[in-house]
Structures are given as structure tokens and as C-alpha cells.
């Protein structure tokens, strides 16, 4: 025997279930309870940079939209600064909660395009949104990123995209621009499966 390390174990994850909205977005569950629902406004009114809309669907292994998913977004501001690690515009939270339409499964949210952030060893990362997905049937939240197809040069040098061995899979993380709207579908399983990360 050796000495015990005595670390605690992380609390195990469980699915957020189909009624996740009750806790994290009660207005979407169908009732008003909090004076302020959190996560409704990623940027605040003072954010600098290009205002964009991101839209898409989360799709399961049968090709059906996941209508009860909840997505959390975490991003830097237009200068590449995360709230809490430098000065950001007053009211810029960088975090939001996104819920698709219960009928169609289409989601849509407004934000600003983030700037490049320094990655490990001071290598710049291409602009990206960090996304975390929970839903019924998802036992532990799925982490992915959304990059922008109009950042071709930065994407080509991005240290995270370059970790993806099968180069065609990198495209699963790149949203398609159409004016100020970016289209980004997330495929949980099967053809075109989105790359998910173990962080």
C-alpha cells in the first residue's frame, strides 16, 4: 500500500432531462418566476464589433432535430478578451443560453463576432464560440466550438482545428456565413458528426 492521495471525486454528471427549461429558462417552460432570467443577452448594449446572428439545428443520429436541447455559449469580445480576464465593455457577459423552437428545433441567437484569443504557448486561436450542449439523452454535456468560414487564414492556423486528424472533420466546426448570419448545424451522431472535445 501507499499513501492515500485523498482527492475528492468529481460529482458524476446526469442528463439535464427534457424539462431543463424549468430550471434554466423557466419562461420557455411556460411560466415567469424570476425577475431576471440569466443568459438571454450575451453582449449587452455596449459591445463593440460586428453584430451577428447564429442559427442552426442540433440533429440526432436519425436525422431528427433535437428540440429539447439547451446550448450554452461562452465567448470573448471583439478584441479577444474574456470577461474576468481583462477589460470588456460594460454589460458584456460573453455567456448565454440558447433554446430552439420547440416545434421546429431551429435555434437562433444574437451576439458579436469574437476576436482571436491567445491559445496555449501564445499561439493565436481563430475566432470561435465555445458551446456546451445538454439535453434529454445526453448523459454528460457535450463541448464543441463554432468557427467562422470567413476567417479562412486564421482557421488554417488554428491550433485546435489542426488537432483534428481527419481534415474533412474540421469543417464540422465551421459556420457558413450569409451576410451577418452564420449557419451552424450540430450533428450528434453519424454522417457529418460534429467534433466534440474532452476538455
Amino acid at each position: 500500500m501507499v499513501q492515500a492521495l485523498n482527492y475528492l471525486k468529481e460529482t458524476a454528471s446526469q442528463t439535464a432531462g427534457p424539462y431543463v427549461h424549468i430550471g434554466l429558462a423557466p419562461g420557455d417552460a411556460g411560466f415567469d418566476i424570476y425577475a431576471r432570467e440569466l443568459g438571454r443577452d450575451i453582449t449587452g448594449p455596449n459591445a463593440l464589433g460586428k453584430r451577428i446572428t447564429v442559427t442552426g439545428r442540433v440533429i440526432d443520429g436519425t436525422g431528427a432535430p433535437v428540440k429539447d436541447v439547451l446550448i450554452e455559449v461562452w465567448q470573448a469580445n471583439a478584441k479577444g478578451v474574456y470577461p474576468g480576464s481583462g477589460d470588456v465593455e460594460d454589460g458584456f457577459r460573453g455567456w448565454g443560453r440558447v433554446i430552439p423552437d420547440f416545434g421546429t428545433g431551429a435555434y437562433s441567437f444574437e451576439t458579436v463576432k469574437p476576436g482571436a484569443v491567445q491559445g496555449r504557448n501564445d499561439r493565436p486561436m481563430a475566432p470561435h464560440l465555445n458551446l456546451w450542449l445538454v439535453a434529454r439523452g445526453i448523459n454528460i454535456g457535450l463541448n464543441t466550438r463554432m468557427y467562422f468560414d470567413d476567417e479562412e487564414t486564421a482557421n488554417a492556423a488554428d491550433p485546435v482545428l489542426n488537432l483534428i486528424e481527419q481534415t474533412h472533420r474540421r469543417n464540422t466546426l465551421i459556420a457558413r456565413a450569409e451576410g451577418n448570419t452564420y449557419h451552424f448545424d450540430i450533428r450528434l451522431q453519424g454522417d457529418g458528426e460534429t467534433v466534440f472535445f474532452d476538455l
Partner: peptide, 21 residues
Amino acid sequence: ARAPRLALLSLQSSASELTGP
């Protein structure tokens, strides 16, 4: 139908993962 079939990609943390709201 909601479980990825491919392996997760291990990612060493950067500011994107180590900061939070």
C-alpha cells in the same frame, strides 16, 4: 441516437476553457 459515435478529441485547456461566466 444522441450519443456521438466517434471519440471525443482531447483538448489541452486554453483561456477558452479556463475562463467562465
